[in-house]
Design a protein around this nucleic acid. Structure first.
Lengths: 208, 208
DNA sequence: ACCGGACTTGACCATTTGATCAAGATTTAT
DNA sequence: ATAAATCTTGATCAAATGGTCAAGTCCGGT
């Protein structure tokens, strides 16, 4: 007789399956309407479950929001984390910016969810910002500063350069309707070339 | 005996005064919590009026929101509009970027209000985006292209360059809590130098 | 086949919130 | 001073919404 599972209760097939479709629906709803603007009813309707059923898996609206937010945070850090100090700066930065753009175009809802959270004061992720994010940025800013010191990059304010990369890349998700209103549906490859050109041309030596 | 005012009824002193404080309060509330997240009660409390009194001046919540949004749109276009084709590109772009940063730091709430509106699909300003904004951007992109053709700027994708300027400058308002979490309260002049360097170093000839 | 636990939901509740209204207070024009 | 217009608000309403519950259905292991 196996001792009954204690705390980390094993998840049922139905359980993990439903949690997943709920979080998928919640991402769409919250990113489109904001935390307050999105309703449990909307999420339930979108994933074909009843409202009480949603609340069987997540006891409060806040729990749904936190879960969907957390699910995106890890992916958010990943591209920057993989910036390799030992490799060629131009290659690495090109790769990083391209990866960010892939996220932007591949998962715009996630970008908008995060943007909305920050925009409204980051009530749920303040700890994340001051902890893991700050540490990662500080570390990678150091990498960039070393590249500058080694003459592999023209002098640039490392931290603000990272901010610029975030701003420009995420812009195509967060402000997508504005971009679309002005140039229509953007061509990804053209965006990529333009963004790389704008951000890198100034700091890669021997390109001017 | 003067004929009674017809449609554009003259505004009372009290009326224009109260409308102003209402819109000021509404800007703070809506930019902090979003359209759906901000309540009439919050706005009323912030400006010291009763809720029915607010609704005496603006019949619906939506009217308040539209009014405060419209009040910011004009100011939003102004800096770009004043980009002078006849002047020196480096000077003009420096001035434009600086003006945008002044808006960012001087009126962060307005920036966040606008960002929130776009982020959620621009339900109230779709016409503005496709009309006045697109026209202005198209016109100014032409100016930049002419500068490029005249050899006064290195080749750059004009429209995407304008997007990059918006993205990077507004980032310091829209993502202020993230910036603050990472570097603390930013020094405006340092931000200005860093942003100008990142955005312009690559495209102004003879700087590398 | 059957039993216990997991899952599902219609009905319901309490609170929040946008909006109304009638009655009273204040301002303005004469 | 006084009447008309403007302004103000307590009380109240209806709808939306987060959340509960009891009662039923379904699933998995034996």
């Amino acid at each position: 007789m196996p001792k009954p599972q204690a705390k980390p209760e094993r998840k049922t097939r139905i359980q993990s399956q439903n949690e997943e479709i709920i979080l998928d629906a919640a991402l769409e709803v919250f990113s489109a309407y904001g935390y307050r603007g999105g309703t449990i009813d909307q999420i339930a309707a979108r994933c074909g479950l009843s409202k009480p059923n949603l609340l069987y898996y997540f006891r409060r609206k806040d729990d749904i929001y936190k879960a969907v937010l957390e699910r995106t945070l890890a992916d958010w850090l990943e591209p920057l984390r993989s910036l390799d100090p030992a490799a060629d700066p131009a290659t690495e930065l090109t790769r990083y910016i391209s990866a960010k753009l892939d996220l932007t175009f591949g998962r715009p809802a996630a970008s908008r969810l995060f943007a909305n959270e920050i925009l409204h004061g980051a009530p749920h992720v303040a700890r994340f910002l001051k902890g893991p994010l700050k540490e990662l940025v500080d570390a990678k800013a150091l990498v960039i500063r070393r590249w500058v010191a080694e003459g592999k990059l023209r002098p640039v304010d490392a931290t603000h350069f990272i901010f610029a990369i975030w701003a420009v890349t995420q812009h195509y998700a967060d402000f997508a309707v504005q971009v679309e209103a002005i140039i229509g549906t953007p061509d990804r490859e053209r965006v990529r070339r333009a963004v790389l050109d704008i951000l890198l041309r100034g700091i890669i030596p021997g390109r001017g």
